[in-house]
Write a protein that binds this DNA or RNA. Structure first.
Lengths: 338, 338
DNA sequence: TCTGGCACTCGCGTGCGAAGAGTGCCAGAG
DNA sequence: CTCTGGCACTCTTCGCACGCGAGTGCCAGA
């Protein structure tokens, strides 16, 4: 077990390193923090911390930098979440309030998060499966061609063009639309399959094929993994860590282009509060030198999707966590209003 | 006026520089291209080309690199558009064909373009103002709250939530929906304002306020500059030019985050064919060392939006132009089908 | 257990010299 | 007038040695 002072030393190392981006030595530590002990003592503590794997030196004769394990301890035990200041809160609210539709909300949120944290922001669209149906619209494009439009309570809109096996009249279409809506409107998407399974039976034989096709398209839309969407922004912030660069930024940009990777990344965070995954805790290789701070957000009590930021492991964890949490809270409010 | 051979020298310089990314000298030139003259002659030609501002040397004792003006001449006079090979064409078609909706088409197009050109791809969503209305849907969310959903022939869907000045009944809503659609369905968006201006008069006095609100929201949606959307991808490709990096990539990433900048960028290209803007020809400062290759695409004869790529001025122009043109063509086809 | 002192290790910046690439110019040939 | 070969010159790049400074580890003493 580490003594109280050693934990303080670790905390000081993390704070200094995050601030300066440079390995921190024993002397500098005692000068910048009032630890009340001499550099020599700190050196001993550092040796112990290194022994335990919390810090490391890039090369002999340099200062120490925290390891992933060190950051983990810092986040779990040594630091809290830094709340946003009132002016910041107001700024967040103002920034999000002008949004005209869901795309706009998401886009603004991404920009906001990227600006606040000065890192790469990721915002997932509200998940269909965790939303409820507001309306299902069917439009006839051609005699045997129908467009299905799905609208959720969170403002998300999905559409599909369907080729029908047989021509489908306007009246049948109106009938299907009405029946569909009366069954599913206001219900949770996860309940939709069981709510519509017997629907074809209500139709004439010649229309049943088409009705089934429409319904199966509707259900396909809800298949997890297909239905998830997200938006990212603030990639320019990656260039702020320009030293080691090309080698470090490349895989990150590549990972960010893979929606699947990102969705998995966000999906892994099960914690109801702010989740932090540090360095190698991220499954994806390209993100081994980054940390991901994420949290769920939702219009009501329940999370309908996640948002977060990706940054270097040497980030300001308390501040980032605070910003992420605050933004999630306000986005939830905005969604609830619309 | 430049002699034929000097133009060939310029072409050779551009080709070699694009290939190797390194300043090209007179000796290497005569070896790699059969110019039929000696290095000394080429040196004289180079001096002339430099005099005219087509090439430059980074420092006294290095080879020459093309200037923006040199690339411009190359693109205009010395190189054509390199057509895609049949296998490439098939690959493009296959890649785009699986798309389920417009977002998917755009997303796939971005990925495709980024992969083909190994550069940053930008795809604009079909412009509303240049599309026709497929359907307008109105949904009642609350007694005095309506959702407006707009669907275009290109598959684009926009939605807005409207707070009405007065409660609006289901029947009035249905009435408005029917009248709206009968007037605007199939018509061009630019004609919508004049088609609906007298619509409030058909309603009871108490509903007129709401109808006007709905209509003005509809018209707002069409305001150019608000209605444009785009998607970008392939930013990881920026890291391929890793030498000069941090300084060069930073402003580009920043510019790419500014939708406004990008829209202006694409908007400036008036040419009906493939447009190339080289280096300083781009108004935005951050893009001064990049070139933008763009082209309009559309479901019919007319362009509904643009797509293109952003890359270093030292890019393979013929190949990039070929890829951009080919992709635009196929995207147009796909849109026409759906 | 903490502290001050001291020797040691390394990374980093600097200066210098050799190597190499490429140019510009010039005189001569076609 | 144009092209060519030769030659001197310039400038960048690279390798290497050197010294400085930061930081460590260890030890003896309080």
């Amino acid at each position: 077990m580490l003594s109280e002072r050693r934990l303080q030393v670790l905390r000081a190392i993390v704070q200094d390193y995050v601030g300066t981006q440079e390995p921190v030595g024993s002397k500098a530590l005692t000068e910048r923090h009032n630890l009340g002990v001499s550099p020599a003592t700190v050196r001993n503590d550092m040796a112990a911390l290194e022994e335990e794997g919390y810090i490391a030196q890039p090369h002999t004769s340099a200062g120490r930098i925290p390891t992933d394990k060190g950051y983990r301890l810092f986040v779990d035990k040594l630091a809290g979440v830094k709340p946003m200041s009132p002016p910041e809160r107001r700024a967040i609210q103002n920034f999000l309030e002008g949004a005209v539709d869901l795309d706009d909300v998401v886009a603004r949120t991404v920009r906001l998060l990227a600006q606040l944290t000065r890192q790469v922001a990721i915002v997932q669209y509200p998940s269909l499966t965790r939303s409820t149906v507001r309306h299902v619209e069917l439009l006839s494009l051609a005699p045997a061609r129908v467009m299905l439009v799905l609208i959720t309570d969170t403002g998300r809109v999905e559409q599909r063009v369907i080729d029908c096996p047989a021509p489908f009249g306007e009246t049948s279409l109106a009938d299907l639309r009405a029946r569909l809506n009366s069954r599913v409107a206001g219900r949770r998407f996860t309940d939709v399959p069981s709510l519509v399974e017997d629907l074809p039976e209500a139709f004439e034989v010649e229309d049943r094929g088409t009705v089934s096709t429409v319904l199966s398209t509707l259900l396909e839309t809800l298949v997890e993994e297909n239905e998830e969407r997200l938006m990212i922004g603030g990639t320019a912030n990656l260039t702020r860590f320009a030293h080691d660069f090309p080698l470090t930024i490349r895989p990150v940009l590549e990972a960010l282009e893979e929606q699947v990777v990102l969705l998995k990344l966000l999906g892994e965070a099960k914690d109801p509060g702010v989740t932090v995954r540090i360095g190698h805790e991220n499954a994806h290789e390209g993100l081994n030198s980054t940390s991901v701070v994420s949290v769920g957000y939702g219009s009501g009590g329940e999370a309908v999707a996640k948002l977060g930021v990706v940054g270097p492991t040497r980030m300001d964890y308390p501040g980032t966590m605070g910003a992420v949490r605050a933004v999630a809270r306000y986005v939830g409010q905005i969604l609830a209003e619309s």
